[in-house]
């Protein structure tokens, strides 16, 4: 399931879909024959590109993979501040699945995207009947969106969004020197394209949803909940993690990747894919 990508642009193909909120961009890795689907949902400040290697790997494994740019992100519609609550974002995801007739996907979300995926899967925030899912992967689900505001990785992201392109490029090369070049490239793209106002709106308005970890108790499909090492930038403290594991139903698993911080799928791609494969085996 590993791919030797030369650059982000080599991964998947771009498409657009018109949803009630506007036009959304997504990247797709489509097999030639019908296949189980996976939908990848990036974190705050990110785009589909964060999944460049994950999407390619899942596609190579025979899945029909779609990675959406959430509202205000990448090449998707950018509504004004005031419309970045989890209700709206989860609603977009629901509309996305319906518009493209994606049936029973494995839904994989990172941070903000994980919060939206959880809101959608449980129907707790979106006020919609949850779509049929085959499974759920929640990577670095924040305890609540408000809690992200004080995280060091968020302060770094804001600092880089406000820095010169030259500085950001050197910072990524230095700080993420152990990452795969494609993952460094995708982070650089995200930092250069992110909208500070949207980024802050997603935090402020997402906070209205309140604590997210108790929602885990309402997950009905097989799920993998992953956290990064809090000493390396992971967002869940040991107390948060204990609560998450207590809330998780018995058909779900909690996983950690030693040494990885907030960006498990880029910081430890092989470990992340191993755990996803293990979940897929149970889903199949």
């Amino acid at each position: 399931m590993t791919q030797d990508l030369g650059s982000v642009a080599d991964s998947g193909t771009s498409h657009y879909v018109d949803l009630p909120a506007g036009r959304f961009h997504y990247r797709r890795w489509a097999p030639e024959v019908p296949a189980p689907s996976a939908v990848l949902v990036h974190g705050n400040g990110g785009t589909w590109a964060t999944w460049a290697r994950v999407g390619a790997a899942l596609g190579a494994a025979g899945m029909d993979v779609l990675a959406v740019d959430l509202r205000g992100s990448g090449a998707s519609v950018r509504p004004p501040a005031g419309s970045y609550g989890l209700r709206e974002v989860a609603g977009d995801l629901d509309d996305f699945l319906r518009a493209l007739r994606v049936h029973a996907p494995l839904l994989i979300g990172h941070c903000w995207g994980g919060a939206a995926a959880l809101a959608l899967a449980t129907g707790a925030v979106a006020d919609r009947v949850p779509p049929v899912l085959s499974g759920l992967v929640l990577e670095e689900l924040p305890p609540d969106m408000a809690a992200t505001a004080t995280q060091p990785v968020v302060r770094d992201f804001l600092r880089m969004m406000r820095s010169s392109p030259e500085y950001v490029a050197k910072w990524v090369d230095l700080v993420c020197r152990d990452w795969h070049p494609v993952d460094r490239e995708s982070l650089l793209e995200e930092l250069r394209g992110a909208d500070v106002q949207v980024y802050l709106s997603a935090i402020d308005e997402g906070a209205a949803a309140g604590p997210l970890l108790p929602l885990l108790a309402r997950v009905k499909v097989p799920a993998l909940v992953l956290r990064g090492d809090p000493r390396r930038g992971g967002m869940l403290s040991d107390a948060d993690w204990q609560l998450a594991r207590e809330c998780l139903p018995g058909h779900c698993v909690a996983g950690e990747l030693p040494g990885s911080g907030h960006e498990l799928h880029r910081g430890d791609f092989a470990g992340f894919m191993r755990l996803v494969r293990e979940l897929l085996a149970t889903v199949a």
Binding site: P152, L174, V175, R177, R232
Partner: peptide, 14 residues
């Protein structure tokens, strides 16, 4: 200095 700590140190210096 791993990835996260390098970022912390750069922030401290700044």
């Amino acid at each position: 200095l791993d990835s996260f700590k390098t970022a912390r140190l750069v922030g401290f210096i700044h």
